[in-house]
């Protein structure tokens, strides 16, 4: 037993130390920082001035931050509905017994493994291009004038462009989660339903959906986590035309702390920390709400 104790300590120590340095310590310090006024990120604790909730109050009084929160909420909600809908549809098709299932699955998941910068560049510079873009050519080919004329990269439409491009990449991941959930449902349920004369859509509605509560919860949680960290796509899309359509809280924080910072009123690392805390709180709240809504996960299957 003594031997096991040394082994546990020796084997566990490196991972736990890394975890403490990269996660535990920074999380506590960020929470602390959010209640202080801090001029430079590197300032020692002795130079911090306690300011209570004023960082949070300041944030909510800043219009740009409110816009960024509204944007991330729109991405989370509309993008979420779009991605979850498509992911569930694709998962249902994949598990319906079609041929080439693995090929379809692999290709739909593919955008998740390639560099998002490369993917975003393809969308920005090619698909949405007003001169030689894919959507323009498609509109021309189908004689859909609205699609041919649609200016995706106009300030007014940039958000839709961002949403479409981002969701295209995300569908594959959530589809895999849904599909694995559907595959775990026993085939005998469907056989019994078929014998009782239920058609495919009824089977989907009354067997598949109720048994997918657990994976739906996973999917919503994962979607919320990736939404909270939304940065790269926003930064790349704001490059084309700098406007407030595509700014998100993480970009706001980045510009505030690490960027030129000229658009901000004051240099205060505490505000950046408050942004991080707010985003984390959002994720936790969503997680708790999901847990409550999808509580009846006890159906055995």
């Amino acid at each position: 037993m003594k031997k096991n104790k040394t082994m546990i300590v020796v084997f566990l120590a490196p991972a736990v130390i890394m975890f403490s340095i990269i996660f535990l310590y920074p999380i506590f310090r960020t929470v602390l920082m959010s209640f202080f006024k801090i001029e430079g990120v590197t300032d020692a604790v002795s130079k911090w001035q306690f300011s209570g909730l004023s960082n949070y109050i300041k944030l909510f009084n800043t219009e740009l931050f409110r816009i960024s929160m509204w944007n991330i909420f729109r991405i989370w909600l509309f993008g979420g509905i779009l991605v979850m809908g498509l992911a569930l549809l694709f998962a249902a098709i994949l598990t319906s017994g079609i041929r080439f299932k693995n090929v379809f699955r692999a290709i739909i998941y593919m955008p998740n493994v390639v560099s998002a910068v490369a993917l975003a560049t393809m969308w920005l510079q090619y698909v949405f291009s007003p001169k030689f873009g894919l959507f323009k050519s498609l509109g021309k080919f189908l004689h859909w004038e609205w699609l041919e004329k649609f200016q995706w990269l106009d300030p007014a439409h940039l958000f839709i462009a961002l949403l479409v491009a981002y969701c295209f990449g995300m569908v594959g991941y959530h589809m895999l989660i849904f599909a694995s959930g559907i595959e775990r449902i026993g085939a005998d349920y469907y056989e019994a339903a078929t014998l009782d004369g239920a058609n495919r859509i009824q089977q989907f509605r009354y067997i598949t959906l109720p048994l997918l509560k657990g994976v739906t919860k996973t999917n919503i949680t994962m979607w919320s986590i990736s939404s909270a960290g939304f940065f790269l796509w926003s930064q790349l899309f704001s490059m084309v035309v700098s406007n407030t359509q595509t700014i998100t809280p993480v970009v706001y924080m980045y510009q505030n702390i690490f960027g030129a910072g000229n658009s901000m009123t004051e240099r205060n690392a505490g505000i950046g920390a408050a942004v991080g805390v707010l985003l984390s709180v959002c994720v936790v709240v969503i997680f708790i709400v999901c847990d409550k809504i999808f509580k009846d996960d006890d159906i055995e299957f």
Partner: peptide, 30 residues
């Protein structure tokens, strides 16, 4: 092995997978 803190470490690691980068970047950069 079962030992004190096993579940705690596991739960901590699972929770860490959901922590946004904004939450850790400032102290690390500092």
């Amino acid at each position: 092995f079962t030992f004190w803190g096993n579940r705690l470490v596991q739960n901590g690691f699972v929770a860490a997978m959901g922590v946004p980068a904004t939450m850790i970047v400032l102290p690390l950069f500092g």
